[in-house]
Design a binder for these strands. Structure first.
Length: 906
RNA sequence: GCCCGAAUGGCGAAAUCGGUAGACGCAAGGGACUUAAAAUCCCUCACCCGCAAAGGUAUCCCGGUUCGAGUCCGGGUUCGGGCACCA
């Protein structure tokens, strides 16, 4: 064992050992309990960033812990290799996306190895490999055969200058990111997967995911957005029916407010609006206007609410009143029926719209109190001639208030119906049912379950993705590529230039023969959404290399026992992956219904960002490594200085590491300077996994300091052993109190650490507990003679267990120290130590004494003391007596092992 | 705008089921060792008042429930994630 801790040396040695002995290659073994630990695979953007390091360290800690617990563990790694950044890099550098991507993968693999992650490297995959995506193409064809995918027109962002489809991310303030042209909406035929057909199952199965965070389940449930409502037909008033429609159908979740309808709104893309646009230039202009700019939901919801009257009236199905139809920019064509009944008194958007356009507002819902008043007012009105009661003026003003509210106010809460004919006085549920029944009887409405969730559009008008295996023929229309012709290979030598999909200009790819009739045909040039690639990779890892999509090995490994990744994937990726597994089940590929048994959503990694104001008035962001920080006597930061120029900088606060703020910390620099173990320890110690983690250079040094202290502790013990001969076994009966204290602390810590690793995923507190133990061992060493055989035996036990507890987090130093402690087999193969319950028993416990909930004293009582004895000891405390003097004890509360509380009063 | 989170010393955090707020670490201050520096080791460290003991105040803000609230409930503020073509 070396005198000094040398991370570079021991890390390389440990990594070489794991590689040579293929320690982490997983073998299916039905006799052993499996554990499948998976972290979300990275996009190969170039180098690892701190977020990756954090994510993969968490996964590795769980993997190594479960392995030490004796499970048969699979931890694979791969790359989510298709996507936009590769095309952007190609535009910038003229390098084909494939070349850029494969080179990045190589770099990142080397970094992952340097961090010592226990991956089964033999299962490495990248989604851009034909061996991977051919099964995705095959699966799409199975779904097509089962009618689970279909083609329809759908809107995309179109850059009229660059003649290309833009991702939402590439639209900035309604303009193309490169051209600056105002973006237009275009209708393009695209492929969709029928996820709405699985909406109910995706919603209900959330209840089976008892090891998922509630926040994620709530977000998914809200995203699916199941709502019960009514479809209601409003007959078109005479003349309008000529447009080809007999009635306008709306969807509403508030049929109880139907008597408050004063107009109806439709989406600008609604057929009725488009028909009106044919004859009305104002409507045409409005429709045209909504074709421009952003289409994101956030943009739609925050934009000014605008609309135009269509010049068409519809007939209210219950009152037979005529109400006007408006086109409004806040009504979404792809939600419900693209039309809503507007109730300005009880819907905020309708209210705002009605005020703006001078449309009537009719109050039809009242609170119970209002309803009671209204009834009294009605009685009062009929009696008012004879009754000049003194409370009349007060009543009048209340009635006035109700009337004022009914003309201007807006309440969205449920209540009792008023001004609603025979439905007056009904609650929401009763009114819903009664009105639904009446409309059904009239043939003017039906109950319906609606979802906010929309079908999943999987087509992307982009080159660097998995080709959609379809051939278009003039006679046979869309024909799937025959399975024996898969994969449809993506040519890897093209270079996108920002003006459309280069596949369109590649005849070798596009031109083909129709598989049905043999005539010349065109191949689909759209590729799959990359969420398709990442929706099943976890299953492929479990049947790596199979000549089918997934094989029986997946039955052994699936589902994933723990899935770890960023909270930003809480909805889309996780919902699509859940959906895909249900599809795979229905195609007969698996029996499981959910892919991820347990989910850990990890927080982002932040760093302080600094900038200076340039002469031009802009901000120049300075990398944190070029900044010095000055502090006051208390350690508070007073000034940040640019090291090169001495200029005072402005601290912009903590933010996610990003290129734009130039505040990224390169993990490679940190590994080179401090070693992989220190990086891993720092990442796990600084914050709990779900929380954001703020990078600090000083923190990483602290991690290194702990590892050096640990090294020294073991070194001293080992050297003492060399001097004093062989170890004896522990004789628990003969231990002195210091030795017992060490063993109690050791086994308390072991119990806590196991719970923290397994149940709580609270790695920071596990490390803190190990540090406490380590601090105690330092004091124990200083206060004991190395020569004392029992002390040495206790120390040996403690150090062994400490090294094992830390091994999942800092595997390299643990590998080395374990061997130094005299073990021939590596620490990764040593079984997890057992908690010795006997060692944890203490003779006495410390309690606090409270008077009226305030801390007034501390007492020590025997561990098995009865309540009476505890109270007597508490009352004997001098300070407690001071606060009780002259008071009467009204109540005494004893909480075992915690506290005594006396409630006193004069 | 809508949905989901978060907020505790100078800083990162801990307090696991409503029971001692601040474990563990960082920074800072003081000291030891050293020719010196680094490293290492020891001490102090929420705030106010005090020599100390004791006391008071503190977990984003305003209310509430409880013998007792960082933790539960209602209302707000600020920050972060997502919003369907970034991954």
């Amino acid at each position: 064992m070396d005198q000094d801790y040398n991370p570079q040396k021991i890390e390389r040695a440990a990594q070489d050992f794991w590689t040579q002995s293929q320690s982490f290659a997983a073998q299916e073994d039905a006799a052993r309990e499996k554990f499948y630990c998976l972290s979300m695979f990275p996009y190969p953007s170039g180098k690892l960033h701190m977020g990756h390091v954090r994510n993969y360290t968490i996964g590795d800690v769980v993997t190594r812990y479960q392995r030490m617990r004796g499970k048969n563990v699979l931890q694979p790694i791969g790359f989510d290799a298709f996507g936009l950044p590769a095309e952007n890099a190609a535009i910038k550098n003229g390098v084909p996306p494939a070349q850029w991507t494969y080179s990045n993968i190589e770099t990142m693999c080397a970094q992952l190895k340097q961090l010592g992650f226990a991956y089964d490297w033999s299962r490495k995959l990248a989604t851009c490999e034909p061996e991977y995506y051919r099964w995705q193409q095959w699966f799409f064809i199975q779904l097509l055969k089962k009618g689970l995918v279909y083609r329809k027109n759908s809107r995309v962002n179109w850059d009229p200058v660059d003649q290309t489809v833009l991702a939402n991310e590439q639209v900035i303030d309604g303009r193309g990111w490169r051209s600056g042209a105002v973006v237009e909406q275009r209708e393009v035929p695209q492929w969709f997967m029928k996820i709405t057909g699985y909406a109910d199952e995706l919603l209900h199965d959330l209840d089976t995911l008892d090891q998922w965070p509630d926040a994620v389940k709530t977000m998914q449930a809200n995203w699916i957005g199941r709502s019960q409502g009514l479809e209601i037909d409003f007959k078109l008033a005479d003349g309008a029916a000529a447009a080809g429609y007999q009635h306008l159908t709306v969807f509403t979740t508030r049929p109880d407010t139907i008597y408050g309808v004063t107009f109806v709104s439709v989406a600008a893309q609604h057929p009725l609006a488009l028909a009106a646009a044919q004859r009305d230039s104002a409507v045409a202009a409005f429709v045209e206007e909504t074709r421009r700019g952003d289409v994101t939901e956030a943009a739609m919801e925050t934009m000014e609410k605008r609309g135009v009257p269509l010049g068409v009236d519809v007939i209210h199905p219950l009152t037979a009143e005529r109400v006007p139809v408006w086109a409004a920019n806040f009504v979404l064509m792809n939600y419900g029926t693209g039309a809503v009944m507007a109730v300005p008194a009880h819907d905020e958007r309708d209210h705002e719209f009605a005020i703006k356009h001078g449309l009537p507002i009719r109050k039809v819902i009242a609170t119970e109190a209002e309803f009671a008043l209204e009834k009294r007012a009605a009685t009062l009105g009929s009696l008012s001639d004879e009754d000049d009661s003194t409370e009349q003026p007060a009543q009048q003003s209340l009635i006035g208030a109700i009337e004022a509210a009914s003309s201007n106010g807006c309440t969205t809460e449920r209540g009792l119906c008023i001004n609603s004919a025979e439905f007056d006085g009904l609650t929401f549920d009763a009114a819903f049912d009664a009105i639904a029944t009446k409309l059904e009887a009239l043939g003017a409405g039906r109950r319906r379950i609606n979802y906010r969730l929309r079908d999943w559009g999987v087509s992307r008008q982009r080159y660097w993705g998995c080709p959609i295996p379809i051939i278009y023929c003039e006679t046979c229309d869309a024909v799937p590529v025959p399975e024996d012709q898969l994969p449809v290979r993506l040519p890897e030598n093209l270079v996108p230039d920002g003006r459309g999909n280069p596949l369109l200009r590649t005849p070798e790819f596009v031109e083909c023969k129709c598989p049905q009739c043999g005539k010349p045909a065109r191949r689909e040039t759209d590729t799959f959404d990359t969420f398709v690639d990442s929706s099943w990779y976890f299953a492929r890892f479990a049947s790596f290399g199979a000549n089918v999509m997934i094989d029986a090995r997946a039955d052994y490994w699936m589902p994933v026992d723990i899935y770890i990744g960023g909270i930003e994937h809480a909805i889309l990726h996780l919902l699509y992956a859940r959906f895909f597994v249900k599809l795979m089940r229905d195609v007969g590929l698996t029996e499981i219904a959910e892919p991820f048994k347990r989910l850990l959503t990890q927080g982002m990694v932040l760093a302080e960002a600094y900038y200076r104001i340039t002469e031009a008035g802009g901000r120049e962001w300075i990398a944190p490594k070029d900044v010095d920080v000055e502090r006051d006597a208390k350690g508070a930061i007073t000034r940040a200085v640019h090291r090169a120029s001495g200029e005072t900088l402005i601290a912009a606060g903590m933010g996610t590491m990003s290129k734009s703020k130039n505040n990224g910390i390169d993990p490679q620099d940190i590994i080179d300077a401090h070693g992989a173990d220190a990086v891993r320890l720092y990442m796990m110690f600084t914050a709990p996994p779900e929380q954001t983690l703020e990078w600090s250079d000083a923190g990483i040094e602290g991690a290194g300091r702990f590892l050096r202290r640990l090294w020294k502790l073991v070194l001293d013990h080992v050297e003492a052993g060399n001097q004093h001969g062989s170890l004896s076994t522990i004789d628990t009966a003969s231990l002195n109190s210091a030795q017992k204290d060490v063993r109690r602390k050791l086994h308390d810590t072991l119990a806590k650490v196991g719970d923290d690793y397994e149940r709580r995923f609270s790695f920071n507190t596990a490390i803190a507990a190990c540090m406490e133990l380590s601090n105690l061992l330092h004091r124990f060493r200083d206060g004991s003679e190395h020569a004392h055989p029992q002390s040495r035996a206790v120390m040996q036990e403690a150090l062994q267990v400490l090294v094992q507890m830390l091994a999942p987090i800092v595997p390299h130093i643990a590998h080395e120290l374990w061997s130094a402690l005299g073990h021939a087999t590596p620490v990764i193969d040593a079984p997890w130590p057992q908690v010795d319950a006997g060692a944890r028993i203490a003779d006495s416990v410390a309690l606090v004494v409270q008077i009226n909930g305030k801390l007034r004293g501390k007492i020590e009582v025997p561990a098995d003391a009865l309540d009476d004895q505890v109270i007597a000891t508490a009352l004997a405390d001098v300070n407690v007596q001071k606060f009780i003097a002259g008071q009467t004890i009204r109540k005494q509360i004893v909480v075992k092992g915690k506290l005594v509380n006396f409630v006193v009063a004069a």
